[in-house]
Design a protein around this nucleic acid. Structure first.
Lengths: 206, 206
DNA sequence: TCTATTTATGAACAATGTTCAGTAAACGAT
DNA sequence: ATCGTTTACTGAACATTGTTCATAAATAGA
C-alpha cells in the first residue's frame, strides 16, 4: 500500500505548504491581509482547493496560532534554564516582550485577534498535556516563580500560580499596548519592562 | 440666516444619529459586526448617505473610539478623588478593569482593534490639550502616583510617569487577556487585580 | 417661477469567504 | 488492457463587505 501512503504524504505536504504560505502572508501583510485567494495564488492552486484541506480561514488561523505559540515556547526555553530565580524571571520577561515586538503579527494573531483563535490551543484534544504549547509556555514562566518559592523568597501566603498570571498579564499588557497604541506608553520598553519586573518582584518578595 | 443654521443643525443631528446607531451596533454585535449597511438601515437612510457625513467606516470607528475614551474617563473620575494615594490607586485599578470588562466591545474598539483607531486620539488637533480624553485619562491615573510621590512614599529615583505607564500597561494586560483569552489566566479578576496592584505598589514603595 | 445648491438615492464595482457542479486524472478490479 | 470508482481539483457562481457615482429630488435664493 505504498500508493495510498504517498497520497497521504502529498496531501500533508500540500497542507503544510498552505500553512507556510499563510504564515508568510501574515508576516508581511498582517492577519487582516490574509486572504484565501492570496494563499491560493501563492501555492498556485485554485481557491477551492484550500477547502479540501481546511474547513475555512478560521481553521488556518487556528493552526497558525498554534505554531506561533510553539515559536513563543522556543523563544522562552533558552532563558528558562537560568538558575537564579530572579535573574530567570527578568530574562523571561525580556524574552517574552522581545518575541512579542519582533514577531508582532504572530503575537497579534495569537493573543489579540479573536477569542476563537487562541481557544484553539485549549480546545484541542492534547490541551493540558505535555505537548500542548500553552501548557509548556505557562510551565516555563511558572517555573520561575516556583523556583522563587523553593528558594524561600516568597511570602508564605503567596500563590506562585497567581503570581504567574499577574506576571504574564502584565507582560502581555506591555506588548499589546505597544503593538496597538504606537507611542502611547511614552516610556520605552527598555525602561518599562525592567521597571515593571523590578516593582513586581520587589513587591512579591517576602 | 436662520435657514442655514437649521440645516447645519440637521446635518449635525444626522451625524450624531449615525454615531449613535453605530455605537449600538458595536455594543451588540461587536466591532466586526459594524457594517455600513447595518448603520444605514438603523437610521433609515441609504448607505451612500453615510459618506456625506463620514469619510468612511474608519472615521466612524475613530469617533466611536474617542467617545469610548470619554466613557473611560467618566468611569475613572469618581474614584480619582479618593484622598489616600494607595487607596486611590487601588480604586482606579478596580474601576479601570471593571470598565474594560463591562464595556468589553468599547474597550476592544479603543485598545485592541487597530493602531489607526486609537491614534485618532493623539492625531487630533486638540491632542494633548485639557479637553483631550487621552490626556485626561492619563492625568487621572498619573495623579495617583504623583500623590504617592507627594506623600513621600516613593523612592527618590522613581519616576511617577514611568510608574503610571507600568500601572496602565499591567491593567491593560489583565483586561485584554481576559477579553481575548476566555479562561486563560485561571486566576479570577477579583484575585488577579488586587494581587497585581499589591505587588506593584509594595515594590514601588520606598 | 426659474436656477443653483444641497441632499439623498440605489445601482454599480471590486474584493472578500465560501460553495458546488463539473472535470480530469489516477487508482483498483476484472 | 479496459472499465467503473474514487479522488483532487477547478473555476464559475453566491452572498456580503466598503465605497463610488450618475441621477433624481428637494430646497434655497433671485
Amino acid at each position: 500500500m505504498g500508493i495510498s501512503e504517498r497520497k497521504a504524504r502529498q496531501k500533508a505536504d500540500l497542507r503544510a505548504r498552505i500553512l507556510e504560505a499563510a504564515r508568510a502572508i501574515v508576516l508581511t501583510d498582517g492577519f487582516a491581509g490574509l486572504t484565501m485567494r492570496k494563499i491560493a495564488q501563492a501555492i498556485e492552486y485554485s481557491p477551492g482547493t484550500l477547502y479540501l484541506h481546511f474547513a475555512g480561514r478560521d481553521e488556518i488561523a487556528r493552526d497558525l496560532c498554534i505554531s506561533g505559540f510553539r515559536d513563543l515556547v522556543a523563544a522562552l526555553t533558552p532563558v528558562a534554564s537560568v538558575a537564579e530565580p530572579r535573574a530567570r524571571i527578568e530574562a523571561l520577561a525580556e524574552a517574552y516582550v522581545r518575541f512579542g515586538l519582533e514577531q508582532a503579527e504572530t503575537y497579534r494573531l495569537i493573543f489579540m485577534v479573536d477569542p476563537t483563535i487562541v481557544s484553539a490551543i485549549y480546545d484541542r484534544p492534547e490541551a493540558g498535556g505535555p505537548d500542548d504549547p500553552g501548557t509548556q509556555a505557562y510551565g516555563l514562566i511558572a517555573g520561575g516563580f516556583l523556583a522563587l518559592q523553593a528558594a524561600g523568597d516568597l511570602a508564605p501566603t503567596a500563590d506562585p500560580m497567581v503570581l504567574t498570571d499577574v506576571f504574564w498579564a502584565s507582560l502581555h499588557g506591555v506588548v499589546s499596548l505597544k503593538l496597538t497604541c504606537p507611542g502611547f506608553p511614552a516610556t520605552p520598553v527598555e525602561v518599562l519592562v525592567p521597571a515593571l519586573v523590578a516593582s513586581l518582584l520587589d513587591g512579591m518578595l517576602a
